[in-house]
Design a protein around this nucleic acid. Structure first.
Length: 185
DNA sequence: CCCTGATTCGC
DNA sequence: GCGAATCAGG
């Protein structure tokens, strides 16, 4: 595969859209993400944000010709403490879990946002349905089903990173409480 | 381990 | 110019 005009355009478009190199590579096909990244660099658009081109960028200092009075530092707003506690779907199950540590919450009765719920349903269909012993540091530890049943398994999908769950389950586990708005029912 | 982009360097 | 290998980070 070579970089035809079309392919390059797709590349540019997607890259500008913020697509990841791997996604672009997948889309184009026949190339790896490395190829994409390499091309991106060669095209000189390694930087995605600035649609503006800044040919001249030299020397530090003197970035501000204007009299920047005071407050040159907007300072980081930083994430507010925003009590976005994970609010684990409270599990009433006695400590049934084996050598559990932080222990996964039960998805059960809780007001979960429809979107997140939908995601979970999705995921559960593709879940690897691994057993307890198969749980590793990087498998989603979201439990599904009743532990007392044979119909019990763990999601097992790749975890987000750090988190104990896969993306979808992280979504339902760590809800910003803003979405917990009590929707009438 | 999964993923990101960044760089290098033989081709 | 190309992109695999590698590097550096999350």
């Amino acid at each position: 595969m070579s970089w035809t005009d079309e392919r390059v355009e797709t590349l540019k478009k997607m890259w500008t859209e913020g697509q990841s190199a791997s996604q672009i590579a997948k889309e184009l096909g026949g190339v790896t993400r490395n190829a994409v990244i390499g091309k991106v660099h060669r095209l000189g658009l390694s930087n995605r944000g600035p649609g503006a081109d800044k040919p001249e960028a030299e020397a530090e200092a003197a970035p501000e010709p204007a009299a920047a009075t005071a407050a040159p530092e907007p300072a980081e707003a930083e994430e507010g403490p925003s009590t976005q506690s994970a609010s684990p779907p409270a599990t009433n199950r006695r400590a049934i879990i084996p050598a559990g540590q932080p222990l996964p919450p039960q998805p059960s009765a809780n007001e979960i946002s429809p979107e997140a719920l939908a995601s979970v349903r999705e995921v559960e269909k593709n879940a690897k349905k691994i057993s307890l012993m198969e749980l590793t540091e990087r498998t989603c530890k979201w439990p599904v089903g009743d532990p007392a049943t044979t119909n019990f398994w763990f999601c097992g999908l790749p975890v987000q990173s750090g988190k104990p769950y896969c993306e979808a389950h992280v979504g339902v586990a760590f809800q910003p409480m803003s979405s917990r708005r009590d929707r009438k029912r």
